[in-house]
Design a binder for these strands. Structure first.
Length: 536
RNA sequence: GGCGACGUGGCCAAGUGGUAAGGCAGGGGCCUGCAAAGCCCUUAUCCCCGGUUCGAAUCCGGGCGUCGCCUCCA
């Protein structure tokens, strides 16, 4: 089977054929930087990251653009409130920094930090709207040349009646779109309430650029058209975003772009559905609004958050719950535990058994089939669980040699490149803890179970779980906490893998009233008397 | 009001015509000094009604319910 995506444009799955063989040009709508991104935003960015990673896995060279919207109403309003000097200047000749950057730079930086926290890969380009004003102006001029625009009070509007395909993406038909009160909220003067603005004429108290179009600033939609064309060409392969962007944003992008170029704008439109929290739309007024930072601060493992947001299909609405997070952590723990078990397999480096090769081949075939089918992550995850059960079974029965273990490890390593949720970062075991582990081993040998249980309980209280195996103690990750897997040389000598938690004590965390009991169940253990050194 | 999506076991969730993947949680068992982990066993006829078909969770019609967009909210 071939790689297929569900295209919003045709509302069906289509085989993916890139414009240029072996290469994908991908545009993803990025953040508006007036605040920290919330987990709903990140659901979309994670979907796009998965898409990017899988395309690479499938051998494509990916050129991804993610725009940064750093000029729009809220930013300008914030700047005005803060008394930041509003700028003016020729669009062609702007200084390195503009006053609005004072508002947006910190949030751009925070966005990239959050991205890294969630293991979202770097895109090739992160264009900022304010740096592409000249391109927007010339694009608007091309659209004007097509005779589909009109000017009113210094602003330039696109007349949707003049674009016959208007509505093709969203399914809205122009004659059915009511010019109701809600549509007509724009303060600017439009001939038809449904028209959209390409260029906003200068208004008192707002930032503006001096351009061939006059003084003003760009409308919302034009930045994506201008920047995508500049960096990816006038027709490119895939354009993504959240479902709320289908209308009007992407609909308008198509209209303005295809009018300007008289070419197809985008071949595949992919949209992710929204995230809900505990069954409700996430909203500040509901008290269920979370930024990534909120959750990390409260002790949730960001990689588990990544997994919780990725393991459900991107085109289904996702109900983000704390029970779901916990389950996601358990699923990940199965994998990390298995990898630890595989590491412990001793013996000769014999060639893998044919049955192991068959197993691995079957799993990988199914994984590819699942992901080829419009990124069917739930099915792919099930494949990894199947492999996990099979591998555990073979370890238990003792017919897994190091060569077999290596083969299975390779599968996880390969698919880790796609999912980014399997492999843990490892640190180094604290010497005080090592001493306790050694003491427990000797206690057990001496059948002093009171003392050995005491030590195990103590370690568990600070977030280290010891599990005894026939070969000696081993460790596993706590699903509900922040695991830092520690594996020092001496730990290995003891055949021990230990996990320690890092971070702040839970009693410092404020419990939110809307979820009584949440933190008893999910917060980090009150630690941290032991300092961890990250291992390279 | 217009457009669209969805409704599968306690929870999450695959499966789009041939008699229900996987995970979490729960129960039982093996293993263990006790645990933990792992393994084994264990819970559904797929919102309701009608239709098409030899046969439907899967197609069609109706109903109920949930959600999204129609507002510069991913």
């Amino acid at each position: 089977m071939s790689l297929q995506f569900f295209s919003t444009l045709t509302r069906q799955k289509e085989e993916f054929v890139p414009i240029e063989k072996g290469r994908v040009r991908l545009y993803t709508c990025g953040p508006t930087v007036y605040n920290y991104a919330h987990i709903g935003n990140f659901r979309t960015y994670l979907f796009e990251d998965l898409l990017r990673r899988y395309l690479k896995f499938r051998g494509y060279q990916v050129t991804q653009v993610m725009n940064i919207t750093d000029v729009e109403d809220k930013i300008i309003r914030t700047a005005a409130q803060k008394g930041i000097e509003l700028f003016q200047g020729a669009a062609e000749n702007l200084p390195e920094k503009i006053p609005l950057d004072e508002i947006t730079d910190p949030f751009i930086q925070a966005f990239h930090e959050d991205r890294h926290t969630l293991r979202i890969e770097d895109a090739e380009h992160y264009p900022r709207a304010t740096r592409y004003i000249p391109q927007m102006v010339s694009l608007i001029q091309r659209i004007i040349d097509q005779g589909v625009c009109y000017e009113s009070d210094g602003s330039i509007y696109f007349s949707i009646q003049k674009f016959p395909h208007y509505g093709c993406l969203s399914g809205h038909r122009i004659d059915e779109m009511k010019a109701g009160a809600r549509v007509d909220q724009d303060e600017y003067e439009k001939e038809d309430a449904r028209d959209f603005v390409l260029w906003k004429g200068r208004r008192e108290g707002e930032a503006y650029w001096q351009t061939a179009l006059g003084e003003g600033r760009p409308g919302w939609h034009i930045e994506c058209s201008a920047m995508s064309m500049e960096l990816l060409g006038e027709t490119f392969d895939i354009h993504c975003g959240g479902e709320d962007n289908i209308f009007p944003h992407h609909e308008n992008e198509i209209a303005q772009s295809e009018c300007a170029t008289q070419k197809r704008f985008v071949n595949y439109w992919l949209h992710s559905r929204h995230l809900m929290v505990e069954g409700r739309k996430m909203a500040k007024s509901e008290g269920n609004f979370f930024t990534l930072r909120d959750l990390v601060e409260r002790g949730f493992d960001p990689v588990t958050i990544r997994f919780a947001l990725l393991r459900q299909h991107y085109r289904d609405s996702l109900n983000f719950t704390f029970d779901g997070l916990k389950a996601a952590g358990e699923e990940r723990r199965r994998w990390t535990d298995l990898l630890l078990r595989l590491d412990e397999i001793q013996g000769s480096e014999a060639a893998p058994l044919p049955s192991t090769r068959d197993l691995v081949q079957d799993i990988e075939d199914r994984l590819i089939a699942a992901m080829d089918d419009d990124l069917n992550t739930p099915q792919a995850v099930a494949c990894l669980h199947d492999l996990t059960t099979q591998a555990n079974k073979r370890i238990d029965s003792g017919d897994l040699a190091r060569g077999d273990a290596g083969l299975i490890r390779e599968v996880f390593a390969r698919w880790e490149n796609v999912f980014g949720v399997i492999i843990e970062d490892r640190g180094v075991l604290d010497s005080e803890i090592e001493a306790l582990i050694e003491e427990r081993i000797s206690s057990r040998k001496a059948k002093n179970f009171k003392r050995s249980d005491e030590i195990r309980d103590h370690l568990q209280a600070i977030g280290i779980i010891l599990e005894d195996t026939p070969q000696g103690p081993a460790g596993s990750a706590r699903p509900d906490t922040f695991p830092v897997i520690l594996s020092s040389a001496s730990a290995k000598r003891l055949r021990t893998e230990v996990i320690q938690l890092s971070g702040s004590p839970c009693h410092q965390v404020q419990q939110p009233s809307q979820w009584p009991g949440v933190f008893e169940r999910y917060c980090r253990r009150p630690d941290p008397i032991h300092t961890l050194q990250p291992c390279v």
